[in-house]
Each structure stands twice: as structure tokens, then as C-alpha cells.
Write a protein that binds this DNA or RNA. Sequence first.
DNA 1: ATCATTTTGAGGTACGTCCCTCAAAAATTG
DNA 2: CAATTTTTGAGGGACGTACCTCAAAATGAT
Lengths: 353, 353
Amino acid sequence: MRPTVNDIAREAGVSLATVDRVLNGRPGVRDKTIRAVNEAIRTLGYVRNVAAANLARQRIYRFLFVLPDTQTQFVDSLKAAIAEVARGPLAESCQVMVATAPLRDPHAIGAAVQQYRTEFLDGCAIMAHETPDVRDLIIHLKSEGTAVVSLIMDQPQTPRDHFVGIDNEAAGRTAGVLLGRFVGQKPGKVAVVVSSMLARDMVERRLGFDRIMAERFAHLQVLPSVEGHDDRVLTEQITMACLASHPGVVAIYVAGAGTRGVTEAIEKVALPNRPVVVAHELTAHTRAGLVDGAIDAVIAQDVGHLARSALRVLRAKTDRLAIDAGQEQINITVLLRENLSPISARILTAAAE
Amino acid sequence: MRPTVNDIAREAGVSLATVDRVLNGRPGVRDKTIRAVNEAIRTLGYVRNVAAANLARQRIYRFLFVLPDTQTQFVDSLKAAIAEVARGPLAESCQVMVATAPLRDPHAIGAAVQQYRTEFLDGCAIMAHETPDVRDLIIHLKSEGTAVVSLIMDQPQTPRDHFVGIDNEAAGRTAGVLLGRFVGQKPGKVAVVVSSMLARDMVERRLGFDRIMAERFAHLQVLPSVEGHDDRVLTEQITMACLASHPGVVAIYVAGAGTRGVTEAIEKVALPNRPVVVAHELTAHTRAGLVDGAIDAVIAQDVGHLARSALRVLRAKTDRLAIDAGQEQINITVLLRENLSPISARILTAAAE
DNA sequence: ATCATTTTGAGGTACGTCCCTCAAAAATTG
DNA sequence: CAATTTTTGAGGGACGTACCTCAAAATGAT
């Protein structure tokens, strides 16, 4: 049987009230007594019964997700995943809110969050570019006692508690290896399409990709990035322009959103051989592309896992509990036509509504 | 605020005791009343507060994991993962036990489980070959009201509640595509090393592998499986024999345990070119192989996820709750040197103790 | 209508924690 | 040493559910 607060009281030779004061950091306890209680906690190996605690305190955690307002399939599926998790048992006694703000207007993010700060926020998960405004926002939130995690794109220069997302440099390297090995020995050019070089995830992916290409596939010439700004039409145009001005493209790495624009551009510009295409994120479109052969590999992160992990970490941080590194590690998922799960199809169509 | 049992009582116009009897399936309630209560539950959207319920009933779930007693690194890491999960918050009010039994002796499994059945088991996760004995065991457990999940290897011909593991045919196909594309255009032979063709996962992987090879890589000749029976020395011997009798092997698919035996055989039989090696499961050895280039790709399943998922599913089934398909889906993880996470190294070395 | 039986209600205690009050004890101050 | 302040103890109610008892009410059978 697990020790309870009563056991601690007995062990420490104090009353229940005192144990409670120590456990919940209430004032009016001598240092000596605090130490005695902590000692009892340690020797008995006491762990607070979180279920009972939450039951008693009727606490509602207020968590806010801040997402870009871009209408990309990936962000949509992330939103759907968050909504689903918010309905599930993980969000027990949590109020999960979602704010959206334009990625390119740094001031808008602060404004969007401001609306939710009229009441105290327990935690905040932020997916945003690494700008001074966002940095200040995170610093401010932390100073108020709000737990903060960065989502998808890290904010390493800030005091955020945790980063929920993949190692983007490793993802870029992985994409590079697959692309390079799939192309084989034949020399040629490789086009790289990103969302925006202002986005840290894009920069890191590109960095990892370039490193591996230089190191292992020197016979492939990597072209400068073209930026699609998460816009399908624009991405299609610039991809077409890129393919037109650079004959001999044998592969395309789509490091950001806009894969639809890229595949459509490929269809229109009749290349002699279909280029190898490696893209990011599992969406209805990239899934279809894998199935019909328009895309060779997709580097993905599980949005369900992202949403659950962000929630779990925010909760753990608010309660000052340890997190399970293994469980919160977001894996770089390599998807080929052959390992697409049937479930993902169901989830993606459900998210599309 | 979420509705409570009191709200249901009021809504249905009955007493708390009656609601309680309906909720917990106790006898002595008229059908008409049961329907009225259920109706109230439905209209109010009542969901039982699991935390409060477990607190009140002081219930200890008894769960048993049945694993093979083979000393492979994969099974060891799975054991470590189970032990870790058993210590974590997911195993709150759970008693998690692990029994081991020789895979090749079907009677031993029943005997191993018998020891734990002196008290009632709430749930059982079984990793075993698909034999009549195991089938009978599962049927028996289910008839007693024990929740059963199959682990790693499915038991589709039994009334198990759920399968916790990857789609092994898809895994075989994935291995095949990677191997085929990594080899490139050059023709040659492909050796396949399995644990045992009695194991369903091996058979399924081999099936998926063969399908994709026939379909997309007809220039590669796939050799018959050699069986290593999870024994490193034996695996090394038969692999060497295979390589000796079949010149022109350009790739090896290690569908089962014993990757160490295979890589050692490769080193000893000096082949003209290093063959492409695709193996299964992330272990200290396959990880090292990826890093030093002896292995090209590893198809893995996250043992932490397996352990957590099995536990969550067993709990959900005992409580007759729904499971989150997205969360319980075990992904086929493709690992290359480039997307190995630093965390996995820590975990693997920790598991090695 | 009477009896036996089934169904229902009322009430209680418990789980482990939080949070509150009030008084008693101990420590500190002048 | 007394007065003051700080620290501690004792106790209780609450959260939502489980599970128990006993009596009352409703129902069914005769």
C-alpha cells in the first residue's frame, strides 16, 4: 500500500495539518519541521496521489495553444488532433484553448494571447517563428508562472520549459539520405522548397539536408531554397519557375508546406524522368501522393503525439512533476507507401471536415 | 461543470443508490428504471470520473505480461520498458507482473500463467507463438473475464481483445522497399534471416517482403529463409553457410533476432561489396550497426510505446472503456543513422543493465 | 386483501487530498 | 517574566464515486 499523508505525519511526528502545509508550500512552518517532513517523505517514498489531489482541489488547468492561422493541411490536422485530445481523458480537468495568429506578424501573437490572459494561464504551447516579440511573450508568460512549451519550432533562446517536436536537423538529414539513396548514382540537381527561411524548423531541416548531401551525395547539386510561404499557388509558381530555369532536376525536397503546389508543378512541367520527391508531414495530400507514387517518402511527426505530449508536459510542468523523456520524445517518422497505416487514412479524412 | 451521479439521480427521478446499482451492474433494478437511468446518463452526457472511482474502490488491477524467455536484446529491452512503465503514473493502482516461458514449448506458457492465476487476473498481455495451447489459454482467460491482448505477434484466431504491435506484413514491405531501393539497379541475391517460421510475425514479414520484391524489384533473387532461432551463434553459422553457398548476395534482410550473428558472419565472409543490410528492432547492437554503417536501415517498434499501449488497453478493456485508436496504433518506425535519437542511446544502455 | 418478494430510498463510511478555522503550544521579544 | 508572535495540532467539510445496511415502498401472487 502506498504511503499517505497520514503516514508521513506519523513518521515525522507532526500533525496532518503541518504535513499539508509543507506539501503545499503554505507558510508558518519552521525550517526544522519542514526538513523533518521532507525526510519522512523521502524515507517512506511518498508520492502524492494526483487523482485524489485533483478531485479535492477541483482544479481546472487552463492551457492555451497558439498556432499560426495559415490554412495548411498540417496545421489543420494539428488543430484537429488538439481538439480530439482536449475531449479525451488526458484533458481531464483541463480547459484547452486554441488561439491563432498570422505567422508573419509578430505583434499579432502577443495580441492573440492577451485575450486569454485576462484569467491566469497555467500553460501555453506556442508554435511561432523565433522573433523578439515571441521571445518577450515567452519571458513574460514564464515570469507570471505560466508553463511554456514550444511546439514544432523550437525557441531555444527563451526560458521555455520544453520543446515538443522533432529534431529538425536530423529530419533534414534523414530526408537527405532517403532522397540521395533513392536517386542512386546518377548526377543531377536537387530543388529544395521551404515555407520560409524565417522559420527555424525550415532552417534546421535545410541545414541537416545540406550537410548530408555534401557528405554523402556530392554528385547531386543542391539548388538554393525557394520559399513558398505556405501558399499553394505561390509554391506552384515558384517551383515551376525553378524547374524551368534549372534543367536536370532529379529530385525535390519539400521541407515545408505546399507539397500540393510542388506536385502540381511537376505534373505541368513535363520532366524527362519523374523526380524523386521527399516531403514533410502526413496530410491527405502527401498520403495520396505516397499511394499513387507522386511522392517517394514523407518525413512526418505524429500530430496526435504532438498534441498529447504538449498537454502532458504542460500538466507535468504546472504540477512540478517529472516528465517521461521516452514518452515525450517525438519521433521522426519515415513514411513510405508501404508503411502507411490504414488508421491514418481515417484520421486524415476525419480531420478534413 | 461535469454532471455527477447526483445529477443523474435527479434527472431520472430516482435515488443515488439506484443510479449506483445501474452504473455498477448490481442486481435488483427493474428494466424500466434501468432504462430511465441510462436515458438520464445519455441526455446529461455523464462520464464516470475514473479518478474518483478508483480512489473510492481502492482497486488494484492485476496485469500479467507473458514473454518468451529468450535472451535477445529486443526482449530484454521490452522487459525493461515494461518495468519502467510499471513504475510510472500509467501503472497507478496496477500490479504489473511478468512471466517468462520458453517460446518453443507451448505447454510451458500455460504453466507459467497458472502460477499467477491463483488470484484473479484483470488482464494479460501475451507474446507467444500461435499454437493450440496458447489459443486455449487465451480462450480460457477470456472466459474467466480476463482482458487479453496479444503482443508483438498477433493471435488473430483467438478472442483476444486487441493486438499491440506493428502490422508485420507492412513492416516486411517497408523493409523490402528500403532494401530494394538502397541496392539500386544491380542484380543479385537477397538472403533472408528469420527467427523461426513458426512465429507469425516472421511469416508475415517474410510475406510482405516477398510481395514487394516480386512486384518492384524483380532483378533481385530472394533466397529461402534461414532460421536462426534467436540464437546468436547459430545465426552466425547458418548465415555464413548461406553466404558461402550463394555467391552474389547483395543484400540481407534480417527479419528476426540475431542481427549480431549476421553482421559477424558478414565480417568473416569477405564479400566483394558490403551487402545492404536491413534489420528489425532497435537494440544496442542494431543502433551501433547503424552508426558504424554495418546496417543500412532498421525497422523498429518503440518498446516504450508497446508497454504503455498494452497497459492502457488492458485497463480500458477491464473498465469497459473505449480506446484511442490513434494513440494505440504502434507505428512502423524506420530508423537510419540520421534519425537515431540521442535519447534512444541512453535508454538502450540503461536497459542493458 | 394478505402475504411474500422485489425494488427502491435514505443514510452512512470510505478513499486521499485540499483547504479552512480555532485553539493550544512553543518560540521569540522586550 | 510577561507579552507577543510564530508555529503547530485537532478537527471538519468537500470533491465524486463505491459499497454497505436497513427500512420503506411498490409489485406480484394467492
